[in-house]
């Protein structure tokens, strides 16, 4: 009986948590169009989420591109197809690795930071203070972070893609001795072979920019949700931070599959 009660309580808590998450997401999006607009907060968050993540994103992108080129070169050398290494690196980076890697990096660096900051504000009653002073904490804290993440994740992904392709170029030039012009020609061939949306926008770019836009929403809302639900002092802040990174990372990987399915069905039908 006690076990049943515990299961019931745990299930009820999960359902309430999910309900709160949807309520938070709805309000955060609704407040994008409602006054007052916290422009300074949005710019500050764009700096924290975007500019300050540049280093980590460039570094991971560059080395991932190098590893991709290196691994594929080993296989391609068997068939004498090393000249296509640019195609492989660009396709992998733009469609999949760029958005997912940028998403995972930002989830780790920024998601944990947001959860810790909002969680600390919760346990030190600063969220209550906002409420008491007639400010909606969702409007003041969540919406600026959501807007910043929605705008900065696609930008970081493009930078990650470019860094990855440059990383591939380094391996192509110095390890495979391929001319740079040939490498970039195969990169462009790959991008254009996927077709275009509205004649000018490569399908691969659409793939590559829809995903980070959604990942930005997932990271910011997950972090704010766990941050706002923090209880139990500083230990609770640690728990919220861990939950944010784990949940956001899993959601990014799972959502990535479904977005890919949907985009393939839409763009290649």
């Amino acid at each position: 009986m006690a076990l049943l009660q515990r299961i019931n309580a745990a299930a009820r808590d999960k359902v309430f948590s999910l309900q709160e998450a949807f309520f938070l997401a709805w309000n955060a999006f609704r407040f994008i169009f409602a006054r007052p607009f916290y422009k300074e907060d949005v710019i500050q968050q764009m700096d924290a989420i975007g500019v300050q993540s540049l280093g980590i994103v460039v570094l991971t992108g560059f080395f991932t591109g190098m590893v991709l080129a290196l691994q594929s070169a080993v296989q391609m050398q068997r068939f004498g197809a090393t000249s296509y290494v640019g195609s492989l690196v660009s396709a992998s980076m733009i469609r999949e690795l760029g958005p997912v890697l940028a998403g995972l990096m930002v989830a780790g660096r920024v998601g944990s930071g947001i959860a810790a900051q909002i969680g600390s504000m919760r346990v030190t009653e600063q969220i209550d203070a906002l409420n008491v002073m007639g400010t909606d904490p969702i409007k003041k804290l969540v919406t600026p972070r959501l807007i910043a993440a929605l705008l900065m994740l696609p930008a970081l992904t493009v930078i990650n893609d470019v860094a990855g392709i440059f990383g591939g170029n380094v391996i192509a030039k110095y390890y495979l001795q391929l001319p740079t012009s040939l490498y970039w020609a195969t990169v462009w061939d790959q991008i254009s072979s996927g077709g275009f949306v509205l004649r000018f926008i490569p399908n691969d770019f659409v793939h590559g920019l829809v995903k980070p836009f959604i990942f930005g929403g997932i990271i910011s809302l997950t972090a704010c949700h766990f941050g706002l639900r923090t209880t139990g002092g500083t230990e609770g802040v640690g728990v919220s931070t861990t939950r944010t990174v784990v949940t956001a990372s899993i959601l990014i990987l799972v959502t990535d599959y479904f977005i890919t399915q949907a985009l393939l069905a839409l763009l290649h039908s």
């Binding site: 600063q126 008491v132 007639g134």
Partner: peptide
């Protein structure tokens, strides 16, 4: 309720200043 709260000032146990 947010409007009514503007007529109230609150001092928290831990001050709750925005750090």
């Amino acid at each position: 309720a947010l409007e009514i709260r503007q007529h109230m000032g609150m001092v928290f146990q831990g001050s709750a200043l925005f750090d």
